[in-house]
């Protein structure tokens, strides 16, 4: 390939991710944003104004004037939504921490396992994906319900006298999220631990660290990229999770995914649900962008 040709090729390669983002993320986002600025209507689609190419440019400009932030004002004024956001974030934070606490030792054990058994362990972590997510969540109902497997086991062992009420509480949601998202935490942590040079730990020991201190001062900081990736992979979908709170949670459980579903399907209020979705997106994206910016800055230091 000529130099010129390869320069064009390089440009094209860069365009691909941008094109992907534009088509599958930005465009839908703007459609949702537009709907969130509309007004409910008993029509098809159930909101106004509806942009139409036959209106011509002036018509579209007129209709743009009809858009309003009324839905956002409504959301801000209603404590139900604020509480739903806060409670979703709380549940997501707690489940992410719990997932991390369980996943890290698993990933560590896998990375330290002999080379021969590692592929098998990796396979075991991925194995649950072979069954439908929905079926696995339903299975937890059978396990957690008052006369379910867990309670039977604990009663038989004599650990408890009467069945624990777990199903339809936040506990069930935590269990469901931790269980469902565990592989997304284990895999990135495993991959960062696995490629770590073992002689780094030895160097730390050599310089006077006990094994525990060597872990905290060397192994753990170096696995941070994996920990961060894993936390994002769990936290982001957990905030908007709908299936798990719907199936395992109780009436008192307030999560934004469920609220959104209600607005959209039960109330047929597309503009409000679009506004709920937009705010959710901003809540997630803005802090992440700040975080990445800070990271990039920290990496750049010392150069």
């Amino acid at each position: 390939m000529s130099k010129f040709g390869s320069a064009i090729f390089n440009r094209l390669v860069i365009i691909i991710p941008y094109a992907w983002l534009t088509i599958f993320f930005l465009a839908p986002f703007f459609i949702v944003l537009r709907i969130s600025l509309s007004e409910t209507a008993i029509a098809m689609p159930p909101y106004l104004p509806v942009f139409n190419l036959v209106d011509g440019v002036s018509g579209i400009v007129d209709k743009l004037g009809e858009l309003s932030v009324a839905n956002y004002v409504f959301l801000a004024g209603d404590a139900l939504y604020t509480n739903a956001y806060i409670s979703s974030l709380k549940i997501a934070v707690i489940s992410t921490i719990a997932t991390l606490l369980i996943a890290y030792p698993i990933a560590y054990g896998m990375a330290k396992a002999p080379n021969m058994v590692r592929p098998t362990l990796l396979m075991l972590v991925i194995l649950p994906f072979w069954t439908s997510f929905l079926i696995r969540v339903y299975a937890w109902i059978a396990i957690l319900k008052p006369e379910g497997l867990l309670n039977q086991l604990l009663l038989t062992l004599g650990v408890i006298d009467e069945p624990l009420i777990i199903l339809n509480t936040n506990w069930a949601i935590y269990i469901g999220i931790v269980y469902s998202y565990l592989p997304f935490m284990v895999l990135p942590i495993y991959s960062s631990l696995e490629k770590m040079d073992h002689s780094l730990t030895e160097a730390a020991l050599d310089l006077g660290c006990t094994p525990i201190r060597a872990f905290w001062r060397v192994t753990f900081p170096l696995s941070m990229p994996g920990v961060i990736a894993g936390c994002m992979l769990v936290f982001i979908p957990a905030v908007g999770e709908f299936v798990i709170p719907d199936l395992l949670g109780g009436s008192e459980t307030l999560m934004i995914g469920k609220t959104l579903w209600n607005e959209f399907n039960a109330n047929r209020d597309w503009p409000v649900s679009a506004a709920v979705a937009t705010i959710l997106l901003l809540i997630l994206v803005v802090p992440i962008m700040f975080f990445q910016h800070a990271q990039a800055k920290a990496d750049g230091e010392g150069k």
Binding site: D197, S199, L200, E202, A203, A204, D206, L207, V218, L222
Partner: peptide, 11 residues
């Protein structure tokens, strides 16, 4: 103390 064949500097 040991100086490692791979240096083993903390990255």
């Amino acid at each position: 103390n040991m100086m490692f064949q791979s240096y083993a500097l903390f990255p």
